[in-house]
Design a protein around this nucleic acid. Structure first.
Length: 726
DNA sequence: AGCACGCCGACT
DNA sequence: GTCGGCGTGCTC
């Protein structure tokens, strides 16, 4: 009488399937197994076992797969995530499994070569050099040997074909060497030491009151040395023989950061991100599961790695929206980190110079502990921030840099320093208008204006990616020479800067950077090295990379983003401007920032200018309270197909009518009309205000079940503080 | 995820 | 008349 195993399969299935456990096979919960599913075999994970039940009429489990089993906390995380995001359990499991794509992209098959002892059939000068180097019989990498001999790899290949060199499979280099927590380092400042002590003294989960939890908000301005502080917590964790995970937004996962890690721990850490594939992926997973890898630095998917003795999770730049996964299973990695920390019984450190409102609220209410780093490391002054009131200091017609801004750039360049002009607008001009007939170029799918990209000679929709060639004459009235670009984008600012400073080196940094991500990364390095005078950049320059030669940051339109109607508009703008102005003066020389604005009295701008972040948070939290908006708690629903706008709107309204919230839940939407087409689906947003203890998920399930269901295409993304449901 | 079934448009 | 588009449903 075989036992029954409940097997969860990593497909869009919400329930585990029952299989018989064949005699002779011993299974434990968490084991990875192969099972028959319909006509084929699939992997699955043992989610439950019933030793006494009879699986007589069930199909049997095929066998166990030799990969590390999923620990209980990780299985609980999968269950939790599925329930929380309304995703099928199997889809949540898929994120924790992600087995290596069989044979897809192999790790660069490292082969070494050594002298075989046989003389080459033909001898040349280049071949002689190679054989002289190889004559010691040692095994070298192909390119290493070629380099050492001062010839090209072709010569080495030729000698392999000839038989004078033989190839040997090299043992792959380990995914990461063990970090040394006691590697010699620059001593911490007093403030840093105090903060580090605070982190390490995090109450152990057993002794912590359930309410306080083990989550700590580590706040400190750009340059205050947060990284060094949480490195101490990582070091302490490693000393105790436990593992640490450092999560970063993918864009911040730079060589610069890994070098800083190496400076503290002697070696670079194991890294995990979407670009790591094939065999390397599996080796890291195995190393993490066995405990050989003690520290992982990774993007959000690293959250689902099979750590077996996790002792710490750090979420760096916790306010970053890149932590939100918006396709497949929708989740917020910062929140899931908090959940995993709770399930693993380990502390979670959320680090940011500009925390999200929800983390601030959680710190204020005592749910998170709050550790602050006052000022910058080494007593360096924060940049002096001044406004340029654009109503008084107007640029010339058709120009966008006001006279004080031009003077400041000039002075900075004369001092041999670097200046950054920040404008969060890609392309050349955000709107194209025909001055003959008044026609404005608009996206045919969305309601947005098409942005001119002069480099590409195209008009592009920044919502859906639609692009058309920029016409020679107006497509409406046929007039030549009347199409006028309105407003600035970074390309246009670069044009203006080039006219003002013709002999200076100017670089435009945006996600449109020609040559792709790798070239962009290189360009960031050269800017950091000071090989450029004026940087013109979008929000991309506000994140990750440090530019030590930068002493002036000029914000060209601080008001962009304040009027978008997004409930997080103020928060986002403040964070962005605070980060970008904080880039100034992080090297030897002090920095300053100039902010062009039409609204110097706007709360966000005023708080930025006063350097008083506290004031911003107080005002913003109060403003949301007054508007009946939650400090956090947003739900998003993705609905319906392309040409069916009317149907989609009808669905939206039907959903709104179906709303009948229980006490403690307030539905504030569908707040917006369909926003955009995202790969053939309309994107809606719903706002839901909750009180603690209300289970929004169950409520939403009911709500959606009662309403007319949009033909199976509904997806709900949830971005609510998970602590409410723990 | 795959795979089958089924219902409407455009073709040798 | 069929070929084939993908929308829907099912897999223990």
């Amino acid at each position: 009488m075989p036992a029954v195993a409940e097997i969860l399969i990593p497909l869009a299935l919400d329930t585990a399937y029952s299989y018989a456990v064949p005699p002779g096979l011993t299974l434990a919960e968490g084991d990875v197994v192969q099972v028959p599913l319909g006509p084929r075999e699939t992997v699955g994970v043992v989610w439950g076992l019933d030793e006494r039940a009879s699986g007589g009429n069930l199909r049997p489990v095929t066998g166990r797969i030799e990969v590390p089993p999923l620990s209980e906390p990780l299985r609980k995380l999968v269950d939790w995530l599925a329930r929380y995001t309304l995703a099928p359990k199997g889809s949540a499991l898929a994120m924790a499994l992600r087995l290596p794509d069989e044979g897809a992209q192999r790790e660069n098959p490292r082969i070494g070569v050594r002298a075989s002892g046989r003389p080459p059939a033909r001898q040349t000068a280049a071949r002689g050099k190679v054989l002289a180097v190889a004559s010691d019989g040692a095994v070298r990498g192909k390119s290493a040997l070629a380099k050492e001999a001062g010839v090209s790899v072709g010569v080495v290949d030729g000698l392999i074909d000839d038989g004078a060199l033989e190839t040997v499979a090299l043992v792959p280099e380990p995914v990461a060497l063990p970090p040394n927590p006691d590697h010699p380092r620059v001593p911490l400042s007093d403030a840093q030491r105090d903060a580090a002590h605070d982190l390490i003294a995090a109450p152990s989960p057993a002794s912590a009151p359930a309410e306080a939890g083990g989550t700590i908000l580590l706040e400190g301005v750009t340059g205050s040395g947060k990284t060094e502080v949480y490195f101490e917590a990582v070091a302490e964790c490693v000393r105790e023989g436990r593992q640490a995970l450092v999560l970063m937004p993918e864009i911040a996962l730079t060589a610069q950061f890994l070098d800083r890690f190496a400076g503290r721990f002697g070696v670079r850490p194991a890294t995990w991100h979407s670009g790591i594939g094939g065999k390397r992926r599996e080796r890291i997973r195995a190393g993490v599961a066995s405990g050989d890898v003690s520290v992982v630095v990774g993007a959000r998917s690293a959250l689902f790695l099979p750590f077996n003795r996790l002792g710490l999770i750090v979420v760096d730049e916790e306010h970053e929206s890149a932590y939100k996964q918006e396709d497949g299973v929708h989740y917020h990695a910062r929140d899931m980190a908090v959940v995993r920390g709770r399930l693993e019984g380990c502390p979670v450190v959320l680090a940011s110079a500009t925390p999200s409102i929800e983390s601030r609220v959680n710190a204020q209410s005592g749910r998170y502990r709050h550790v602050s780093l006052p000022g910058r490391f080494g007593g360096r002054p924060l940049p002096d921030i001044k406004a340029i009131d654009m109503r008084l200091d107007k640029p010339e017609r058709g120009r966008f840099l006001s006279p004080p801004m031009v003077n400041a750039v000039k002075a900075t360049l004369e001092a041999g320093e670097q200046a950054l002009l920040f404008l969060n607008r890609r392309g050349y001009a955000p709107l194209t208008l025909c001055r003959a007939c008044g026609h404005r170029y608009q996206c045919r799918n969305c309601s947005t204006w098409l942005v001119e990209h002069r480099f590409r000679r195209a008009l592009v929709c920044h919502q859906c990616g639609y692009a058309e060639r920029k016409p020679e004459a107006c497509t409406e009235c046929g007039a030549f020479d009347h199409l006028t670009p309105c407003g600035p984008g970074v390309e246009r600012i670069a044009e203006e800067a080039a006219e003002l400073f013709p002999d200076k080196r100017i670089v435009v940094l945006s996600s449109d950077f020609p040559g792709g991500a790798e070239r962009l990364r290189q360009e960031l390095e050269t800017v950091a090295a000071g090989e450029c005078d004026i940087v013109i950049g979008t929000q991309l320059v506000a994140k990750g990379h440090n530019f030590p030669h930068l002493t002036l940051v000029g914000v060209l339109d601080a008001d962009i983003g304040l009027t978008t109607g997004d409930p997080r508009a103020a928060e986002r703008t403040f964070q962005l401007l605070q980060q970008v102005t904080g880039r100034a003066g992080r090297g030897e020389r002090p920095g300053r920032a100039l902010v062009q604005t039409y609204q110097p009295d706007h709360p966000v701008i005023a708080a930025l200018l006063s350097g008083d972040a506290e004031r911003f948070y107080e005002e913003e939290i109060a403003a949301r309270e007054a508007a009946g908006l939650p400090p956090f708690g947003r739900l998003a629903a993705l609905i319906v197909s392309a040409e069916e706008r009317e149907k989609a709107e009808a669905h939206g309204q039907a959903l709104a009518r179906a709303a009948d919230p229980p006490p403690g839940v307030m539905v504030l939407g569908p707040a917006e009309a369909p926003l955009a087409l995202v790969r053939g689906r309309w994107r809606f947003r719903l706002l839901v205000k909750t009180e603690r203890g209300i289970d929004v998920q169950s409520y939403l399930r009911d709500w959606l079940a009662r309403g007319p269901k949009p033909r199976g295409n509904l997806k709900v993304a949830i971005d609510v503080d998970p602590q409410s449901f723990l």
